[in-house]
Design a protein around this nucleic acid. Structure first.
Length: 820
RNA sequence: GCGGAAGUGGCGGAAUUUGGUAGACGCGCUGGACUUAGGAUCCAGUGGAGCAAUCCGUGGGGGUUCGAGUCCCCCCUUUCGCACCA
């Protein structure tokens, strides 16, 4: 398995072989001794914050997907440094959360023992991979001096009225008697025991992120992010313009009441032939007639037992009639009120008007329960009497019919006119609705930061005073969730029993911990300020280094993590604590590595541990391979076999430097190619097109060695900083060998000289009728006439042209097309 | 169902801004050199058919154009998000 091939090279027996293991060890030691990767945050002239999403330190260790992500960011950071920036590239650990906790439960160990070991292993692996990380600024979300400020953050939101408590549904496994996270529910069943999961209502803490929905949406216009990520956020925020309309009804006692619905199609109100309430809607009891009560209760009971996930995925419509009727404010007719689980309490008002003619779901429901279906919009070539085979939902072409005064209106005009009319009687108002829900941050678990709240019988809900932070997560042996449905911390009276900070009477701590996403919502603010233990983020440093210049991470966090950290940043901005409101100026999503056509996963058994590859090929070759296997923003297929290609490239680079000569002058054609390469690599690296940058360097290497020539020093030396971001160790070694002082990363990216790159003669493509027939070498600025003459002198071209050309298409410097 | 992305040699993938040489670069494969040996290194070749001239080729079918992988219309497939959002 020894690939240090040049060791026995018969062609150059005197040449030193490329030994990546020795070189990498050497430079990692030197970097550490000299502090090469450290950034002087105070003195930096041109700060550049290159952030990557921090990993969750799993027990399995770093996997190749992590390394793919980090390497891409590292290359960006190292490139920016060569471009003259003071680059800060920190890395830490997102170590709280259900992942760690479940794993600890599985292996029967305590997360407080497990996590430090995992972090140590990650650190070892990360250092071997040659990242330019300033380890003086590392952090873990599980350290009390980090989560102290996570708790502080909660208090800021609480102070501003952005944190509140309400009842909400959670997934509950009746056999394991525990709360489950959504990802622990597989097809409506408990991941562990297979029991169908139920909904259970618990009091939980929420953040009012939905108040920020318009701003979170609006700002997307101004930030430089991957389009896919912005689209995902827009869809998640889910802005809908529509109207809230009131339907009058009477409850079973005869008292008048109203049902409010949200609709994006007020124009279809004449076609509303029934109403539906969500089963848990508060008006259901009042509206249920005595005769229907049994059926309604049974239905509500049944839907309650379904977990959130099955309810969302089942398609067959179900529902029951309440026995009551409401008045359609447009037609003034009585319409029946039903309940069904296809209407969600969480969205809109938890009630809808059923318009079966123009909504696919309502059509299905009305068909099943034989409710009247009325056409109120028709398309082109249709009339009011054209039968509806399915719901007609097209807004573009639709014209209103069967709609009283509004017949003949186009859909968009009708929306406005109908709402205006109904508004006069107070039964409708225009409204913008967002899909974004408030953020539930309570977790009935152990492995997280305790929520800093104290409940006092006299004073009520009291925030923990800031001076008492952190509320330390105690070491408890039995951290397993149990049948109480509350956090394991609730079993530890000595922990939760506390004096009320206001009145001093015995009170009780909140025993839930907060969501992991809260830990990661602000970590980018902490990195530069690590070491400042008295503040969450130090003012001067924060002003200098934030917002983040470049953020790279996986698109699986396109919505939750990225949205939450934007929200937190806005909140801190509004509180006057930050002078920016968007945390990441530029965000790029990297792709994912697959292996043999399948996503890497433990169950597939195709996980790649980078250790053995780095051991075998060297970190430089491995890094370069990861960046070469596909476009960084798309990912690609990992193949063991292909790594040899990038290793061979480094072997040749190393050998070329060993054999280079300083005598005479460099070859002009090679220098031209060099400058073309400098330009291309620079352009490609800055737009994260790493695979093509590497290809360009390989191409140059081929040109350099063509015909077994001895490369000239001036031909090869500029290549060293070019490869440096990809293969930093070999670059340092060669920089030193070629007489460079200090680190190659404190040198500069080679200057591109357009004059040297310019070709004086070009290969002009000659087409006849659009088909390539020849390529002729001509001066770069050749005129059309001269080009045609030269082309016609070519026997193949003249043969295809025959007589006089009908038309000439000339693209100067590129192509000539003769239409015969 | 909605939204996004993508279909190019045996394989991973190139072809940027503006339609202009399809297959860069790498793996693999074939032949050769050096060698006791080659799974090392170096050299040459490598989309398909054909002796050749040449023809055919970017998921399928139409179209626009002097010229289409690229633009337009229809269809098929894969893949990733969200998923009864009114």
């Amino acid at each position: 398995m020894d690939n240090s091939a040049t060791r026995d090279d018969p062609f150059s027996p005197s040449v030193i072989a490329y030994d990546p293991q020795a070189i990498e060890r050497k430079w990692q030691r030197i970097w550490q001794e000299r502090g090469t990767n450290n950034t002087d945050l105070h003195r930096a002239q041109r700060p550049y914050y290159a952030l990557m999403m921090f990993p969750y330190p799993s027990a399995e260790g770093l996997h190749v997907g992590n390394l793919f992500a980090f390497t891409g960011n590292d290359i960006h950071g190292r490139f920016q440094r060569l471009m003259g920036h003071n680059v800060f590239e920190p890395l830490g650990y997102d170590a709280f959360g259900i992942h760690s906790e479940n794993y600890a439960l599985k292996v029967g160990q305590h997360p407080m023992d497990l996590i430090p070991r995992n972090i140590a292993n990650f650190r070892r692996q990360l250092e071997r991979s040659g990242l330019m990380v300033d380890w003086r600024h590392t952090l873990s979300t599980t350290e009390p001096n980090y989560y102290k400020w996570t708790q502080w953050l909660f208090l800021q939101l609480f102070k501003q009225g952005l944190a509140y408590k309400k009842q909400a549904a959670v997934n509950w496994c009746p056999k394991d008697k525990t709360v489950l996270a959504n990802e622990q529910v597989v097809g409506g069943h408990c991941e562990r025991c297979g029991t169908p999961v139920e909904q259970r209502l618990l009091e939980q803490w929420f953040f009012r992120i939905s108040d920020y929905a318009p701003r979170l949406l609006e700002n997307l216009e101004h930030i430089d992010w991957s389009d896919t990520t912005k689209t995902a956020q827009r869809n998640w925020i889910g802005r809908s313009e529509g109207a809230e309309i009131s339907f009058a009804t009477k409850d079973v006692s005869g008292a008048g009441c109203e049902i409010r619905v949200f609709t994006t199609r007020p124009d279809t109100i004449y076609g509303a032939t029934y109403m539906v309430l969500a089963p848990e809607h508060p008006l259901v009891n009042q509206l249920t007639a005595a005769g229907e009560k049994k059926k309604v209760d049974a239905y509500r009971d049944k839907t309650k037992k379904q977990d959130i996930i099955t309810r969302k995925t089942s398609t067959e419509k179900t529902g029951v009639f309440t026995g009551s009727y409401a008045i359609n404010p447009a037609t003034e007719k009585e319409i029946p009120i039903w309940i069904s689980d296809y209407v969600l309490m969480e969205y809109g008002t938890g009630a809808i008007m059923g318009v079966p003619g123009h909504d696919a779901r309502d059509f299905e429901f009305a068909t099943k329960f034989e409710l009247p279906i009325v056409r109120v919009v028709c398309g082109e070539n249709e009339s009011a009497s054209t039968p509806l085979q399915e719901a007609f939902v097209d807004c573009e072409t639709g014209t209103l019919v069967n709609s009283g005064l509004f017949d003949g209106y186009k859909v968009e005009a009708a929306k406005k006119a109908i709402v205006d009319l109904l508004a006069k009687s107070g039964s409708a108002k225009p409204i913008v609705h967002y899909r974004l829900h408030d953020w539930c941050i309570s977790r009935q678990r152990y492995w997280g930061p305790p929520i800093p709240i104290i409940y006092c019988d006299s004073c009520g809900t009291v925030p923990v005073p800031e001076k008492d932070l952190p509320v330390v997560l105690p070491f408890i042996e039995d951290f397993k969730p149990d049948d109480s449905g509350v956090s394991p911390l609730a079993r530890h009276e000595e922990w939760y029993r506390v004096a009320c900070p206001k009145c001093g009477k015995t009170a009780r701590r909140e025993t839930d911990v907060s969501d992991t996403f809260l830990d990661s919502a602000w970590y980018f603010l902490r990195y530069p300020s690590v070491g400042h233990d008295d503040v969450p983020f130090e003012k001067t440093i924060t002003k200098k280094w934030l917002p983040v210049n470049s953020y790279i991470g996986g698109n699986e966090h396109a919505v939750l993590h990225l949205l939450y950290s934007r929200f937190i940043t806005m909140v801190l901005h509004d509180a006057g604590l930050l002078d920016f409101e968007e945390p990441y100026t530029r965000f790029r999503a990297h792709g994912h590595i697959i292996r043999e056509g399948a996503k890497m996963s433990k169950t597939q058994g195709n996980i790649v541990n980078p250790d053995e590859y780095i051991e075998h090929w060297g970190a430089d070759a491995f890094r370069t391979y990861l960046m070469f296997l596909g476009p960084y923003e798309q990912g690609g297929d990992f193949r063991d076999q292909s790594i040899s290609g990038t290793r061979r490239f480094l072997d040749r680079l190393f050998a070329s430097v060993q054999s280079m000569s300083s005598d005479g002058a460099p070859e002009q054609a090679v220098m031209r190619k060099l400058h073309q390469t400098i330009r291309k690599v620079g352009e490609d690296v800055s737009r994260l097109s790493y695979n093509t940058a590497i290809a360009a360097m390989m191409e140059y290497m081929n040109a350099l060695r063509k015909g077994e020539r001895t490369p000239h020093r001036e031909e090869i030396a500029p290549l060293i900083p070019l490869v440096a971001p990809f293969a930093p160790h070999i670059a340092e070694e060669l920089w030193e060998q070629t007489g460079g002082t200090g680190s190659v990363f404190d040198s500069a990216w080679p200057r591109f000289d357009p004059a040297l790159a310019a070709e004086d003669s070009i290969e002009l493509v000659v087409q006849v009728n659009g088909k390539v027939r020849s390529k002729i070498s001509v001066p770069r600025d050749i005129s059309e006439e001269a080009a045609v003459a030269a082309a016609l002198a070519d026997p193949t071209v003249s043969r295809f042209v025959g007589g006089t050309p009908k038309k000439i298409v000339f693209v100067p410097g590129r192509l000539l097309n003769i239409v015969a």
